[in-house]
Simulated scan of single mutants.
Amino acid sequence: MRALKLIAALFVVLGLVACGGDPKFRTYNGPEVTKVVVYKDARKMQLFHHGKILKTYDMAMGFAPEGHKQFEGDGKTPEGLYYIDRRNPRSRFHLSIGISYPNKADIAYAKARGKEPGGEIFIHGRSGYNGGNKGDWTWGCIAVTDREMEEIYSMVRDGTPIHIYR
Rank of each mutant, 00 (worst) to 15 (best):
M1C: 10
A3P: 05
K5I: 14
V13I: 15
V13Y: 13
L14G: 07
C19M: 15
G20I: 08
D22R: 10
F25Q: 09
R26V: 12
P31W: 04
V36G: 01
V36P: 01
V37T: 11
Y39R: 12
D41A: 09
R43A: 12
K44S: 12
K44P: 02
Q46R: 06
F48Y: 15
F48Q: 14
F48A: 01
F48I: 07
G51F: 13
I53N: 08
K55Y: 13
Y57K: 05
D58Y: 09
M59P: 01
F63Q: 08
P65Q: 03
E66F: 14
G67C: 15
H68V: 12
G73D: 10
G75P: 11
T77Q: 06
P78Y: 02
Y83R: 12
Y83H: 13
D85M: 06
D85R: 09
R87G: 02
N88T: 06
R92H: 06
H94L: 03
L95N: 03
I99A: 01
S100I: 01
Y101N: 05
Y101H: 10
P102W: 13
N103F: 02
N103S: 06
D106S: 09
D106V: 03
I107F: 05
A108F: 04
A112P: 05
K115F: 11
E116P: 02
G118R: 03
G119W: 07
E120H: 12
I123S: 01
G125Y: 03
G125W: 03
S127P: 04
G128Q: 09
Y129F: 13
N130I: 06
G131I: 12
K134H: 01
G140L: 00
G140M: 06
I142N: 00
V144R: 00
E148M: 07
M149N: 15
M149I: 10
M149Y: 13
M149K: 07
E150R: 02
E150T: 01
E150Y: 07
I152Q: 01
M155G: 08
R157Y: 05
R157T: 09
Y165T: 10
R166P: 14
